[in-house]
Design a binder for these strands. Structure first.
Lengths: 204, 204
DNA sequence: GTCTATATCCAGATAGAC
DNA sequence: GTCTATCTGGATATAGAC
């Protein structure tokens, strides 16, 4: 008997999913322009033309991935903010978690890298640019608020909270790029080298 | 009377120079693939075809710029290492100088961004890849050595020197990307947010 | 040295058979 | 839904006049 509408929709979604997740790494390592739709098709194992049954263009795929990247990153940031720990522990948790994701080759590094690339390029679809403009600051602000709370509690060093958040996220961004460049040769720093930005005292 | 060989060579070099410096910003903001030679020609104000009298291909221009980027960056790093200041002052000097270059829109940010992009992309000329492999570590090692000297002198916090160098340069790399993305909207952090990586105590 | 015009190639997107 | 074959546009690189 025929499949239901829901099942068909589900299969279609799964296929779109496969395309998206195959394309992330390609876009992150080569950029939008240098990634050929033939490469994406090869990565997911389908014919080139078939991609166009799921997405209307290469740029469409790209925009969808940028959307997804921000959704995940900003959701993670907001979850961190709502977590029960005291501010200092939240910052340590963020650092250790990010570093762990990075060495384990989870999505985080690819998404971060993709956003970094998309942010600087003029050669990116307008819709992606607009999204970046809207979502860009969320995670910076989350960390800055945690820092301020920690300063009030006396567990985070003094100084401009925004600046610390800026340096922290940019260090993370840089490390994600580094990981993308070096692959398995990447050696992550100890988490304390990152939290040094926030805390006095105690080395490794 | 006719120009001398030297004069002709000089004029040719100047022209090459103009092409290179026009192309840096384009490559850094759009990447190799998305930068058209027509864009470069427009930026320097010459006809598209004329570029090929000075460089044999777009990739050739790219490789030359990567070479130049490393030359400048690594020279600056080595000069820092040889400077007369004590280690702690060298690290402060590096942070303040880099941040100053970044806000003033000097070359540093573009070169840094270009190397970041070129490092992750598989879609880059083999010669550039090879150069990156050779030159990549120089500035990390310089900073790590300064950190170790500072630790010996008791002016830099304890912890793995390599990790601090890694976090420092990746924060710088991230900030350069941020500057590339935001342009004149970029607000640099206070230098102390960067040197927090190395030093205990005293916020801004 | 500099330009305009063009050959050539390659990649995105489409058509149409199965 | 999936494939192969093809159309089409655009960008690199070259040719050739001035």
């Amino acid at each position: 008997m025929a499949r239901t509408k829901q099942q068909n929709q589900r299969m279609r979604d799964d296929r779109r999913e496969a395309i998206l997740s195959g394309a992330v790494k390609l876009f992150a390592t080569r950029g939008l322009a240098a990634t050929k739709v033939a490469d994406i098709a090869a990565a997911v194992g389908m014919a080139q033309g078939l991609l166009y049954h799921y997405f209307s263009s290469k740029e469409d795929i790209f925009v969808e991935i940028v959307r997804r990247a921000f959704t995940r990153l900003n959701t993670a940031a907001r979850n961190l903010e709502r977590a029960p720990q005291p501010p200092r522990d939240k910052l340590e948790l963020a650092a250790t978690q990010i570093l762990k994701d990075l060495v384990q080759g989870e999505d985080f590094g690819w998404y971060s890298t993709l956003i970094s690339l998309a942010s600087i390029s003029d050669a990116v679809p307008a819709e992606a640019r607009a999204m970046i403009g809207r979502e860009r600051d969320v995670s910076y602000e989350v960390v800055a608020r945690i820092v301020r709370a920690g300063q009030k509690a006396g567990t985070v060093r003094s100084g401009r909270a925004e600046d610390m958040a800026l340096v922290f996220w940019n260090a993370v961004k840089g490390l994600a790029l580094q990981k993308a460049a070096l692959g398995r040769d990447f050696r992550a720093p100890h988490w304390s080298a990152l939290t040094n930005i926030f805390f006095d005292g105690g080395g490794t």
